[in-house]
Design a protein around this nucleic acid. Structure first.
Length: 397
DNA sequence: AGTCCACAGGAAGGGCAGGCGA
DNA sequence: TCGCCTGCCCTTCCTGTGGACT
């Protein structure tokens, strides 16, 4: 065993068929020198933010567009350039970071940390944390640009009261100069806000439309030139890669992921070229990895609910909440797991829906009540892998 | 027109773990 | 150590609801 591992590492090192020149170019946090097809948004954002350089009032900005349309990339690019000009301090927070910034307390703690202060992860009254935060703001001499990425996730979780506090910062604390940038995937998000917050947050709005296949191909070409050794990409791979991602709402992130994984597959095989075949397999692998990782990290109770759904689906009948609950109960009892209430399971179902593992929709069967009809949203081959994971967790499946 | 099913999903609050200062 | 605070997971209790049945 040990010997074969060593051999594996050795062949990897000695491999004479390098594919990558610089892998990091294809990572999520890479910011290219030149960003393509987003000139309009860059100019828009830059001209809104520019007054900050003179210490003049900057409007709050709301940015939206679906995933992989460059919202985060462009915002980080423009704000970091702005920061380099001096007189401006940019604080970037991703509100979706689990256990880091997904609650009021944690987000505040994260912001305070950005100012170079430490605060305990829990224990203090929120009021105290706000006070520390205000103190940090007041001490700051620079103009503060606060970027809240995936702001919709935050509001969905804790409501918009906190946002209300934020938008009022500039008004209530006269010696604090601050502007907010909210970034969201969800176009309808802004409508769901309290009108006072809405009008204040969206003083300026910037829309990021999806990339089309041609634009995606330009982006891929730009990245590929830096990431790969010249000539390793087979003709047509970039075009297909772009086309695949264009189908997925013009998601550039997905396009780049596909290309990276195709490259890794080729490398692992010792192939000299990235072929269309590699790309096809990359597509499968991307989905497989995403779902298996998701299921593996699911809490035990959610796994039990999912296992119940999969088992019921095998029987080929329509699945409703009630069926899921009874089967879930059986699984729990057989595995010595605590049985949660109907109400809680209903929430777990909603979570599984959000994560894209299942789809649910409300149906009314008149006399026979109202219920959610549940279907599995995962393709066959991936489902097989997920079943294997669940089988390892529950004895009686 | 009224009833009633089988839930959905909101609100409130309990219990726990982690952490604070006194 | 104690009292107090938080987030998180969960329960209990509740009101709401679309449409088949009476």
């Amino acid at each position: 065993m040990q010997k074969s591992l060593k051999e594996l590492f050795k062949t990897y090192i000695e491999s004479k068929t390098p594919i990558f020149k610089d892998r990091s170019v294809l990572s999520h946090d890479y910011i290219p020198d030149i960003t393509l097809h987003r000139d309009e948004q860059i100019n828009q954002l830059a001209s809104i933010l520019a007054p900050a350089l003179k210490g003049e009032k900057v409007s709050n900005i709301f940015i939206y567009g679906s995933t992989g349309t460059g919202k985060t990339l462009i915002t980080r690019y423009v704000t970091s350039e702005l920061q380099e000009m001096g007189g401006v301090r940019v604080i970037y927070v991703n509100c979706k970071m689990k256990r880091v910034s997904d609650t009021e307390y944690r987000l505040l703690a994260e912001l305070i940390r950005a100012f170079g202060h430490e605060i305990p992860a829990t224990g203090l009254p929120t009021e105290e944390v706000y006070k520390t935060f205000y103190a940090c703001l007041k001490r700051e001499r620079k103009y503060i640009i606060l970027v809240l990425d995936e702001i919709d996730a935050l509001v969905k979780k804790i409501g918009d009261e906190m946002l209300y506090n934020f938008v009022r910062l500039g008004q209530d604390l006269p010696d604090v100069r601050i502007a907010l940038i909210g970034i969201s995937n969800d176009v309808g998000f802004i409508e769901s806000l309290d009108p006072r917050v809405r009008s204040s947050l969206s003083e300026e709005e910037i829309i990021f439309p999806p990339y089309n296949a041609g634009q995606l191909q330009d982006i891929l070409k730009q990245r590929a030139e830096k990431a790969f050794i010249p000539g390793v990409i087979q003709e047509g791979v970039l075009a297909k890669c772009a086309a695949l991602a264009a189908q997925e709402h013009g998601d550039a992130r997905r396009a780049i992921d596909l290309l990276r994984i195709a490259g890794e597959l080729a490398e692992r095989e010792g192939s000299t070229k990235i072929t269309l075949q590699h790309l096809d397999r990359a597509e499968d692998k991307l989905d497989l990895d995403r779902y298996t990782e998701l299921v593996r990290t699911l809490p035990k109770q959610s796994k039990a609910v999912l296992a119940a759904i999969i088992r019921l689906e095998e029987r080929g009948r329509e699945i409703q909440t009630g069926d899921v609950f009874s089967y879930y109960e059986r699984i729990c009892k057989a595995n010595g797991l605590k049985v949660l209430t109907n109400r809680r399971v209903s929430d777990l179902l909603a979570e599984l829906d959000m994560q894209g593992l299942i789809t649910t929709h409300l149906v009314s069967k008149g006399r026979y009540g109202r219920s959610r009809e549940i279907r599995i949203r995962i393709s066959k081959p991936i489902l097989e892998r997920i079943k294997a994971i669940l089988k390892a967790n529950f004895t009686s499946l």
